[in-house]
Each structure stands twice: as structure tokens, then as C-alpha cells.
């Protein structure tokens, strides 16, 4: 039994390998990009807009509003990173309804990669916003003695991000697979729906936490 889609390797040359995680992610990327392109290539600036454009606008504005609510006063600056994070995780979860699909987020490699991206993005945005010295000083707050704890917190929360998402997504797929062997009718459907829900929640949690971390680093959090 496969725990991670990483284990399904289509092609390998030395350490370079094309496993299911990467291929699924490409598929999602293609879907998102082509879908966006198809809709946005015919954007209208009139008062009356097409439905698809309306849906996209609701989505983008909703994300933007969410970022603003967390405390980032200039959401447009963080929208591409945080929005993409959320959209990728949501699509990855949504596609679980398709047979033969395995969510790339069920691979610890993917969640780790995303957590590392967040881990890198936090200081990048922090330095951009407050300057190098200003960002480093945030590790000494509220007192110098807190420096090691701050560093530990930084590392542990990144680890937590990766493990949380991976655990939830992997467990969902795992439970589904196990249930299919013992109760092949109806029950897996309910579990699949539950998996969708937890997947959505996790996507939201992951994105919100990333937003909160960035807000903390840039010192723009509402609190």
C-alpha cells in the first residue's frame, strides 16, 4: 500500500524522477493557468460582466478581503503568493472527486515544499517591509532572551505547517482506501465528502497561517 504519491514513479533518470506528485501538480497548474487565461483573455470593463468573470472576481476579491482581515493593509502585494497557495490547495482537494487522482498534498514532499516556501517568504516580506535590521530585531522581542525561542518557533511552525497538511490529506486518502476494502458501498462516499471538507478546511488553515506569519513578520497584524 502506497502512503505517498511520491512512490508512484513514471520515469527516472538518476536522481531526477517524474513521480505522481509532480505530474498531478502539473496537471493542477495547467488547469488553473489555462482556466484563468480562458476567462481573463476576454475580460470586460463594462458594468455587466460574464458569469465566469464574476466567479473569478468573487474568488479574487474574497481572498483579498481575507488577507486584509488578517491585518495586511496592502493585500495586493501579498495576493499572488497567498492566493496561489490557497487556490492550489483547494484545487488539489477538489480534484479528489475524480477517480484515479491522488492529491499531491498527500505527499510530505509537496507540503514540505510549500512550508519551505512560506518559511522563506516570511523573512523576505518582513525584510521588504521593515528593512533587514528591523526584521532581525523582531527576533529579539519582547526581550533578547527570547531569541532562541523565536528561532525555535520559526522552525517548528514551518514543520507543523508541513506535517499538518500532509497528515490530514494523507489520512483522508488512506481512510478512503481502507474503507473501500471493508465497506465498498455508500460509506466511502460519505468519507470522501468528509475528506473534501477537511481538505478545504486544511487549505484555509494553511493559507491563513501563512498570512498570519507574514503579517507578524511585516508588523502589520491588526492585533
Amino acid at each position: 500500500m502506497r502512503i505517498s504519491p511520491d512512490e508512484l514513479i513514471f520515469w527516472q533518470y538518476g536522481f531526477i524522477k517524474l513521480n505522481a506528485t509532480i505530474v498531478m501538480t502539473w496537471g493542477l497548474m495547467l488547469f488553473l493557468t489555462i482556466g484563468s487565461w480562458l476567462i481573463t483573455r476576454r475580460l470586460t470593463r463594462e458594468i455587466h460582466i460574464p458569469r465566469w468573470q464574476n466567479i473569478l472576481e468573487i474568488l479574487v476579491l474574497g481572498i483579498k478581503e481575507q488577507i486584509k482581515e488578517v491585518g495586511l493593509q496592502q493585500p495586493n502585494r501579498y495576493l499572488p503568493f497567498l492566493g496561489t497557495l490557497f487556490l492550489l490547495l483547494v484545487t488539489a482537494t477538489l480534484f479528489t472527486i475524480l477517480p484515479g487522482y491522488e492529491p499531491p498534498t498527500g505527499s510530505l514532499s509537496t507540503t514540505a515544499a510549500l512550508a519551505i516556501c512560506v518559511f522563506v517568504a516570511v523573512p523576505v516580506y518582513g525584510i521588504k517591509e521593515r528593512g533587514f535590521g528591523g526584521y532581525l530585531r523582531s527576533y529579539l522581542e519582547p526581550a533578547v532572551i527570547m531569541l532562541p525561542f523565536n528561532i525555535i518557533s520559526e522552525l517548528s511552525r514551518t514543520l507543523a505547517l508541513a506535517i499538518r497538511l500532509f497528515g490530514n490529506m494523507m489520512s483522508g486518502a488512506m481512510i478512503l482506501a481502507i474503507l473501500l476494502t471493508i465497506a465498498p458501498l455508500i460509506f466511502p462516499i460519505l468519507m470522501s465528502a468528509l475528506g473534501l471538507l477537511t481538505g478545504m478546511v486544511q487549505a484555509y488553515i494553511f493559507s491563513i497561517l501563512a498570512t498570519v506569519f507574514i503579517a507578524a513578520a511585516t508588523g502589520e497584524e491588526a492585533a
Binding site: T21, I22, L28, M29, T33, T40, P80, G83, A113, L114
Partner: peptide, 23 residues
């Protein structure tokens, strides 16, 4: 799998750029 980690990170950053450009 560290190769996959790097590849996914690159994929993600690529997607960020693509969505920024097209969405």
C-alpha cells in the same frame, strides 16, 4: 523525497508567477 520537494517548490513559484500574470 528532496528532489520532489525542490521540484514542487519550483512548481509552486512558477504557478504563483503564472496566476499573477493570468489571473
Amino acid at each position: 523525497d528532496w528532489f520532489t520537494v525542490v521540484a514542487q517548490a519550483i512548481n509552486f513559484l512558477l504557478l504563483v508567477w503564472l496566476l499573477k500574470r493570468f489571473l
